[in-house]
């Protein structure tokens, strides 16, 4: 089933690529990839130098460390070398080995291991939340557009407006109060059985509301176009117009939201994992900040930022490929 869907998607993309690919598009894609690479490099550089500008080394907070021990520790982690040497080593390790070095506070573990551990849960939550947001968002958006200015549309718009205006930690806390404390049907702790349901719902509400509004407005625009009128005039039924003619085109703006949605889910998970005590990458990020585990902070920031930049890139390129009408700058 999944394989079939994937094949279909790949088929459509390659067909579209074949149709719209020309030198201009290619140049645009190359430019975007270059920008993405520069951005990731800026992230690495900024993160590195910002973290090294913090007054007091990472070991100053440790109690009863003699100077010789501190020097030995710094030598072990390469902190005694000049800054630019450290920077070049760090950059080289990331580019060639994707290695972020050892964690300072969790002895014996590397940053890579900690990130990989956290990613397991976080990716699961994030991907499911994104799918829920996408499916329900599109369905609700289509319904709202069809029933424009009717009761259902009003209700959907009011609810989505409320969801868009609520910070994720507040949404999470409300869900926690309602479902875990009062109704007692779902656990409040992410480690418990079914514990990931509430975090997933919390994380999906904002993007879902956003996609609903996006789909609604783009669907309304598409429904006003000539080819829809032609289809109506030919006597095509309402359902068939929506799903056969209008939906495909009105989904194009939704593609641009891929990148921002991922960015939201990544930052949202930082908060949501805190609220529901889920041991994911977001929680380890916050802990690494409060615990001053610099390599972990740097590693997590760089990995998450790279993820976001790549998703933005993919979203942008897909957008240009899917809709040949879009003019390139």
């Amino acid at each position: 089933m999944n394989g079939y869907i994937l094949m279909t998607i790949i088929y459509f993309i390659t067909r579209q690529v074949g149709e719209t690919m020309n030198t201009k598009t290619l140049m645009y894609i190359l430019k975007r990839i270059l920008l993405a690479i520069v951005t990731i490099w800026v992230v690495i550089t900024v993160t590195f130098f910002v973290m090294h500008a913090v007054p007091g080394g990472p070991f100053t907070s440790e109690k009863a460390v003699t100077e010789s021990v501190e020097a030995a520790m710094e030598a072990k982690y390469g902190l005694d070398k000049p800054l630019h040497v450290q920077y070049l080593t760090y950059l080289k390790d990331i580019v060639t080995k994707f290695d972020f070095g050892p964690s300072l506070k969790q002895r014996g573990r590397t940053v890579n291991q900690i990130i990989a551990d956290g990613m397991k849960t976080s990716v699961k939550i994030g991907v499911i939340a994104a799918f829920i947001a996408l499916i329900f968002g599109v369905v609700f958006g289509a319904i709202a557009a069809l029933r424009r200015n009717k009761f259902v549309d009003r209700i959907i718009m009011i609810i989505t407006t409320a969801f868009v205006s609520m910070p994720s930690f507040i949404m999470g806390s409300f869900l926690l109060i309602i479902f875990a404390n009062h109704l007692k049907i779902l656990p409040a702790n992410g480690a418990a059985k079914n514990g990931l349901i509430l975090p997933i719902i919390t994380l999906s509400l904002y993007p879902m509301a956003y996609i609903t509004r996006l789909t609604r407005s783009s669907m309304l625009e598409v429904l006003g176009q000539d080819y829809i009128r032609t289809a109506k005039a030919k006597g095509v039924s309402g359902m068939k117009i929506i799903f056969g003619h209008a939906l495909k085109n009105s989904l194009i703006p939704v593609i641009t939201y891929f990148g921002p949605m991922l960015a939201y889910i990544v930052t949202g998970s930082i908060v949501v994992e805190q609220v529901f005590a889920v041991s994911g990458i977001g929680r380890s990020f916050v802990n690494s900040i409060t615990g001053r585990d610099y390599p972990l902070v740097m590693g997590t920031t760089i990995v998450l930022a790279t993820l976001i930049v790549i998703m933005n890139l993919v979203g942008d390129i897909l957008y240009k490929i899917v809709d040949p009408r879009i003019t390139l700058e």
Binding site: V46, T267, T301, L304, V309
Partner: peptide, 22 residues
């Protein structure tokens, strides 16, 4: 362009956690 494509929230967290100490 570059600042725009930086993931803002991550940078905000990073910068404010460092500036707070600094």
């Amino acid at each position: 362009d570059i600042i725009y494509s930086l993931p803002d929230m991550l940078m905000v967290i990073l910068l404010s956690s460092v500036l707070k100490v600094a």
